[in-house]
Design a protein around this nucleic acid. Sequence first.
DNA 1: CTTGACCCTGACACTGGTGTCAGGGTTTAT
DNA 2: ATAAACCCTGACACCAGTGTCAGGGTCAAG
Lengths: 130, 130
Amino acid sequence: MTIGELAAVTGVSVRSLRYYERQGLIMPLRRANGYREYSPLAVETVESIKLYLNLGLTTEEIAGFLHCVLKNKEAFCAEVMPLYESKLAHIERQIQELNQLKENLRQRMEAIRQEQGQVEGQEQGMFQGQ
Amino acid sequence: MTIGELAAVTGVSVRSLRYYERQGLIMPLRRANGYREYSPLAVETVESIKLYLNLGLTTEEIAGFLHCVLKNKEAFCAEVMPLYESKLAHIERQIQELNQLKENLRQRMEAIRQEQGQVEGQEQGMFQGQ
DNA sequence: CTTGACCCTGACACTGGTGTCAGGGTTTAT
DNA sequence: ATAAACCCTGACACCAGTGTCAGGGTCAAG
């Protein structure tokens, strides 16, 4: 199948398919005219790539084990578990940071609301004096 | 004070101070030789910029209200509250997405552990409370 | 007067996946 | 034969802030 067909089937843009190739994730054959020729198995490969990208892995990370997981079950690919672990740790760090940010924001918003409440009634035109 | 001195005092790199200037956040005077001349108040300005950057605002967003908050209390600056609100909503969305990612990852890790347990026969639940 | 520390501007790199355009070849149907 | 729809490569843009280098000016102390 051509790149356009694969794109249509998988919902991944032609642009992205070429990018995946450059990242070593998928290596189609070439026709005599230079067109990429994808095997039907490429559909499964692209679906896997989508899945791992959605898990927050980068194409570079995926390249490290995609070859293996396409042939075996994930559990047989030793590269996967440590990657998942570090990714999970990273995500948990991000969540923690975001929660802190959220708390900061909320406190500041609360403070503003308090101050606005204090001047309510005497100062109506507070949106004019800037 | 010179840009190097301001950098030393605030802990912000010279490079970043020039960037803030280009973004319209701080406008030092110039000496006859072209050197930037910062007023002592610039220290406070830079500290405010740091604070808002840490809240997850962009320099462009900060530029929209910094002028006001340096002169008044935050509550007096109408631009701040909607910005905080949308930023908070954005953060909450991010947290939700990360939590979903985390759950996916955990499930996949659990599945791998199960399969590995089947093969190795002995593996006990060594990770309590996860 | 020279050296070293400091300042100036402009520009490229990086992150990571995707959009998009330019400029050109191929195929298919009319 | 021509147009439409595809394909090819290469390159710039985006986000946002920072590092870093090049190439050059300024200043103060020895």
